[in-house]
Computed example of a mutant assay.
Amino acid sequence: MSKTVMVVDDSSAIRKFVMFALRARGLTVVTAQDGMEALEKLARARVDLVITDLNMPKLDGFGLLRALREDADYADLPIIILSSLSSQEEQRQGLELGANAYLVKPFDQKRIQYEVSKFI
């Protein structure tokens, strides 16, 4: 059975690029535009991994990370941050909140496929 990845980013171009890269590897992809939409969709769909941006309206990536890690159902869900925020402080905060990996934009298709393959 195919694994499912949720891509959370307010940029439709980024969502499409990541979706293309993951579908090329046979993965099912669901998308959300921000953390609030991601939480709503997660309540209805089983997901094996989340890739999230940090800068988003409504609920940002840090808030989404917090919400998922505080929920026992998602405590072990692999989460990859994919962000243009590249400072050591943002990376430290993301990893301390429970992200499994932190990728900085821009990125290439092979890198995202490799990172995802480490978790599912």
Rank of each mutant, 00 (worst) to 15 (best):
T4A: 11
P78L: 01
G98K: 10
L85K: 13
S117V: 02
I112Y: 00
S11E: 13
I51N: 05
E96T: 08
L77R: 12
N100F: 07
S11T: 09
K58M: 09
L64A: 08
T52L: 08
D34I: 06
Q109A: 01
Q93I: 07
Y114T: 00
R69L: 08
A75E: 02
V104G: 07
I14K: 04
V116W: 04
R111G: 00
K105R: 15
L39F: 06
Q91G: 05
R66K: 14
R92N: 14
R15G: 01
S87V: 05
R23D: 10
G26Q: 10
I14N: 07
G26P: 13
S2K: 15
G26A: 12
L42Q: 05
A75Q: 12
L42T: 04
K58R: 15
Q113L: 02
K3S: 12
G94E: 11
V29S: 10
V18C: 07
V5I: 14
G63T: 00
A45S: 15
F17L: 15
G61N: 04
M56L: 08
S87H: 03
L68D: 03
K110R: 10
V18T: 06
Y114G: 00
L49Y: 05
A13N: 10
E115K: 13
S2E: 00
F62M: 01
V116P: 04
I80A: 07
K118N: 07
T4F: 03
K58C: 03
K41Y: 11
K16P: 00
K110W: 03
D108F: 09
F20A: 12
L27K: 14
